[in-house]
Amino acid sequence: MTEYLTNINPVAAILIHAAIPLTIILVYALVAIWGERKIAGFIQDRLGPMRVGGWHGWAQSIADLLKLIQKEDIIPTDASRFLFKFAPFMMFAASYAAFAVIPFSSAYIGSMVNIGVFYLLAVTSVLTLSVIMAGWASNNKWSLLGGMRSAAQMVSYEVPTIATVLTVILVAGSLNLMTVTEMQAGNDTLGFLPNWLIFQNPFLISAFIIFFISILAESHRVPFDLPESESELVAGYQTEYSGMRWAMFMLAEYADMLLLSLLGAVLFFGGWNSPFGDFMGGPLWGYFWFMLKGLLLVFVMMWIRWTLPRYRVDQLMHICWSILIPLSFINLVLTALWEVIF
């Protein structure tokens, strides 16, 4: 598909390539926000939104979006205007740009670069910058505290994330996510399991646990949602934002959640590979399986959100620096040994 489009019209090809992940993100955000509210409702024995749109309030997110569009775009008088206006777009841009290297199906990847994972991790670190930019530009102490907390948290948790990603790369031997996915095809681990990396090596299971905890913290999900802990910091760095700028933050957050879940699906659960070998294979089924895996991880994140309370800041840092980082590096070394021996 890629070559065909590029041959006809390079500009159109670029635009279409850019539009596909954007469409996926926007549709996903609408569904995920509605889904999160429904999941929250069902977990608390409620029903969640039920009115808008008929069946189980499916149009609730659309109604919320329309409401947000109508809202006034308030900029505090003493805020740093340019940074204040720019931060949400930068945040969304960072999340969105990272989708370029995610292989959505065997036929589609935004950019077939050799250093896919490296690019992804580098681009998502801009998120930290935009969060602290928003916190600082708001000229509000709660925003600033939220921004600082967030920056500290994201910088810290990037280390175990990268270490676990490195563990997978060590086994897979490629930074290109398409190659990583392709090498997980097939269905003959122990005779019946798919050839997914998580079944390849016992240390990759522990790597996945560390990776999952880290992406919870990176995407600001409970129990690591300190930057915007509602009960303590009002809404953290988002306090002064309203209307569509706030919606951009929300969108970026959900996009980040999906991005990291999809990364987890690629690295540990075989990306777009069907769990039944060749059965239900092909590009469209590949897209289905890939999104299913990603959304299952998103569901687990939401499930955890409505189960666990929040950590304290010092506990958060303790978990990262004195537990997850040593464990992830030990895990890396053990994986390397396992690879050398077997």
């Binding site: 999941i39 409702g41 069902f42 977990i43 608390q44 024995d45 409620r46 029903l47 039920m50 499930w303 955890i304 409505w306 189960t307 666990l308």
Partner: peptide, 21 residues
């Protein structure tokens, strides 16, 4: 404790709701 808690929440997730419309 995390998995116990998650077990509780998933039971409620599939359990009946008490909301009266």
């Amino acid at each position: 404790s995390i998995f116990t808690g998650m077990g509780v929440t998933i039971r409620h997730f599939f359990g009946p709701t008490v909301t009266l419309q």
